[in-house]
Simulated assay, not measured.
Amino acid sequence: MNLEEVKVGAEVMIQDLIGKEEVLRRVEAMGLRRGRKVEVLQKVGRVILLKLNNSRLAISRDIAKNIFVK
């Protein structure tokens, strides 16, 4: 399943990232890497708010569709 499909409040582990190399580098620079656990805090419009460790990140639903989780 991809990150865009995860329900609010669920904690999941990132399994794989796909997409354009420049987008992947930017996503990984934010800390979203394979093996990391994230929690979906909110889905508002085209944005998904995530909790990663003690940080909060906002990513677009388009990017979330390319992040596969378990």
Rank of each mutant, 00 (worst) to 15 (best):
residue 70 K to C: 14
residue 9 G to N: 03
residue 65 K to W: 00
residue 53 N to F: 10
residue 43 K to G: 05
residue 20 K to M: 12
residue 36 R to E: 06
residue 52 L to D: 01
residue 13 M to V: 13
residue 45 G to P: 00
residue 56 R to V: 09
residue 60 S to F: 00
residue 27 V to L: 08
residue 65 K to C: 00
residue 64 A to N: 01
residue 32 L to K: 08
residue 70 K to Y: 07
residue 6 V to S: 03
residue 9 G to P: 15
residue 41 L to F: 05
residue 30 M to L: 15
residue 45 G to D: 09
residue 32 L to C: 08
residue 49 L to A: 15
residue 19 G to E: 02
residue 1 M to F: 15
residue 48 I to R: 00
residue 62 D to Y: 09
residue 48 I to S: 00
residue 56 R to W: 09
residue 15 Q to E: 09
residue 30 M to N: 03
residue 24 L to T: 14
residue 70 K to W: 10
residue 23 V to N: 07
residue 16 D to E: 14
residue 51 K to E: 06
residue 44 V to Q: 07
residue 3 L to D: 00
residue 67 I to V: 07
residue 10 A to E: 08
residue 23 V to G: 14
residue 11 E to K: 06
residue 10 A to I: 15
residue 70 K to A: 14
residue 65 K to D: 01
residue 26 R to E: 10
residue 25 R to E: 13
residue 16 D to N: 14
residue 69 V to F: 03
residue 48 I to V: 05
residue 25 R to N: 06
residue 59 I to R: 04
residue 31 G to D: 09
residue 7 K to M: 15
residue 14 I to V: 15
residue 61 R to L: 08
residue 27 V to P: 01
residue 58 A to H: 06
residue 14 I to Q: 08
residue 68 F to V: 05
residue 8 V to Q: 11
residue 5 E to M: 07
residue 1 M to T: 08
residue 14 I to S: 11
residue 49 L to C: 04
residue 26 R to F: 11
residue 41 L to H: 03
residue 35 G to S: 12
